[in-house]
């Protein structure tokens, strides 16, 4: 059994995001970076499979050198080695390009199972793993809250609105992971130390047979804005009946949340 886990390094969403002066990006100063939480669940799931029946786990990521730190955290959890698709700083790659690069990296590994988070919490693009599956012509299932492996097949619970599908996929397959599936382990110090020495290969787009042009982003962010930074702190006055009416109106008509 060989499992590829796709992970992304993202800013911690607990941070404050400020619009940069160019109004096309956010200020990155002071941001702390973490592994995207859904990817961490995917990694945990891979390691549980490894513990249950043995598996080689390769963690694959795309980005700059700082991604290595993120990949090492997965290795500290138990992944055996890593492949970083290194991209030049400043190159803007869209989901289409990322998926091509990752698909090429995954193909070289020929895993039996590819796991990834259902989305990365920075751009919330929610599409790269599905694209990788399609590009490699692999069966796939998204937003999975339960995963069982048996007889060369994966049986998954796939969350949908108000219910779930139970789907059986032949391996190799790509599965994206939802949060409730497990609790990622707290990394052990000896494993953090060991992870520093585990093999981590870096490949370039050229190595994967891709030109910068082929992966060019065709969905540029042309403007960003902060929706609202502070709480409204609006005390709704009047007698109970009026206040209640007004709050319901605000929730329904202004916020469109009710």
């Amino acid at each position: 059994m060989k499992i590829a886990v796709l992970v992304k390094r993202v800013p911690d969403t607990a941070s404050v995001f400020k619009v940069a002066p160019d109004e096309k990006s956010v200020v990155t100063d002071g941001l702390k970076y973490i592994i995207s939480p859904y990817d961490e669940h995917a990694a945990e799931e891979a390691i549980k499979i490894q513990e249950a029946g043995g598996a080689e786990i390769v963690v694959i990521s795309l980005g700059g050198d700082d991604c290595q730190e993120t990949m090492r955290t997965v290795m500290a959890m138990g992944a055996d080695r890593g492949v970083l698709v290194s991209v030049p700083a400043g190159l803007s790659i869209g989901a289409h390009g990322v998926a091509q690069a990752l698909a090429a990296a995954v193909k070289r590994e020929a895993p039996d199972l590819v796991l990834a988070g259902k989305q990365a919490v920075d751009d919330d693009a929610s599409q790269v793993p599905e694209r990788v599956a399609e590009l490699l012509d692999l069966p796939h299932a998204s937003v999975v809250s339960k995963l069982e492996l048996a007889d060369g097949k994966a049986l998954v619970d796939r969350e949908i609105e108000g219910g779930k599908y139970r789907i059986e996929l032949p391996l190799p397959a790509v599965v994206t992971i939802e949060k409730g599936i497990n609790t990622p382990r707290y990394p052990k110090l000896p494993n953090i130390m060991k992870a520093k020495k585990k093999p981590l290969d870096t490949v370039t787009l050229e190595d994967l047979g891709l030109s910068a042009d082929a992966v060019k982003n065709q969905a540029e962010v042309t403007k960003v804005a902060s929706p609202r930074t502070d709480r409204r702190n609006q005390i709704v006055g009047g007698d109970t009946a009026d206040a209640v009416k007004e709050v319901v109106r605000l929730l329904r008509d202004e916020e469109k949340a009710l």
Partner: peptide, 10 residues
Amino acid sequence: GQSNPWNLPQ
């Protein structure tokens, strides 16, 4: 993450 126990922004 945020260097405080409540995960409030650093």
